[in-house]
């Protein structure tokens, strides 16, 4: 399958990765090559086959929905590129 430049641009946008316009044709070509490879899967008869959810048919453990941890604001903010007054700081989100 061939991926066009518009599709490559759309995917980059969805992935929130800035790709300059002049890099899009090469990117589209790479996607096309990888998708060609993936399309080998179309040869397989998957009629009636369940898609795998988990490799082991184990029931996931459940736990009480309770607070077990907390009160560590400093630790949580310690790696933030920008934190102010106990909050993560980001550029303006709303006008």
């Amino acid at each position: 399958m061939s991926i066009d430049i518009e599709t490559a641009a759309r995917v980059a946008k969805l992935a929130r990765i800035k790709v300059e316009d002049d890099a899009l044709p090469a990117l589209a070509q790479e996607f096309s090559r990888i998708l060609d490879f993936i399309e080998e899967l179309n040869e397989v008869d998957v009629e009636g086959v369940e898609p795998m959810v988990s490799v082991e048919p184990m029931r996931l453990k459940r736990r009480v929905d309770g607070v077990t941890d907390g009160g560590m604001q400093d630790k949580i903010l310690s790696n933030a590129p920008d934190a102010r007054e106990g909050f993560f700081a980001v550029p303006k989100v709303v006008e």
Binding site: L41, V46, V49, M52
Partner: peptide, 10 residues
Amino acid sequence: RARKVRTLIK
């Protein structure tokens, strides 16, 4: 489709 193929591989 890939997840179905994964079932078959297993």
